[in-house]
Amino acid sequence: MLPIGLSALELRNIVECAFLPLHCTCSTADNATLSVDISDPQTGKVHLLKTGIAPERLASSRGICNLIAELRTELTAEQAALVEPVTHAQRQVRYA
């Protein structure tokens, strides 16, 4: 049971549903830390793997929201790094 009265299953459901339609899997390690694996449901390509998340961070609904926001930020940054930057001239040609 987590400090805010949620079971590990309830916490997993909250975090995993926050990243739909991507495939998100939460698991607990032997040392009670949380791991989150976010991948593409069709290709299985891992977009983000975050390990060692301390359960103390999840002591409130705000902590859970902050974790989800942090993971979304990292996921967005990771996906942006994979996209080739488009110059202003290329953008104008594309829409001309």
Rank of each mutant, 00 (worst) to 15 (best):
R57Y: 09
R94I: 06
P41W: 09
A77T: 13
V93I: 08
R72V: 03
L11W: 11
G52F: 02
Q92I: 10
E78Q: 14
N13K: 15
A54F: 07
R62H: 10
A96I: 04
T43I: 01
V15W: 08
N66M: 14
Y95H: 09
I38T: 11
V15D: 06
S39G: 07
P85E: 02
S60I: 07
A80I: 13
L48W: 03
I64E: 06
D40M: 06
R91W: 10
P3F: 00
L67Q: 14
A59H: 12
A59W: 05
Y95T: 12
L34P: 13
I4T: 07
P41C: 02
P55K: 09
I68G: 06
T28F: 14
C26H: 08
D30P: 03
T33F: 04
A69W: 14
N31E: 08
V46W: 01
A81V: 06
L58D: 04
R91N: 01
L67S: 04
Q90M: 12
R91I: 13
S39M: 14
S60M: 01
E78Y: 07
L48S: 09
R62S: 04
T28C: 02
N66R: 07
E10H: 06
V93F: 11
T76M: 02
Y95M: 06
G63A: 08
I4F: 10
A80V: 12
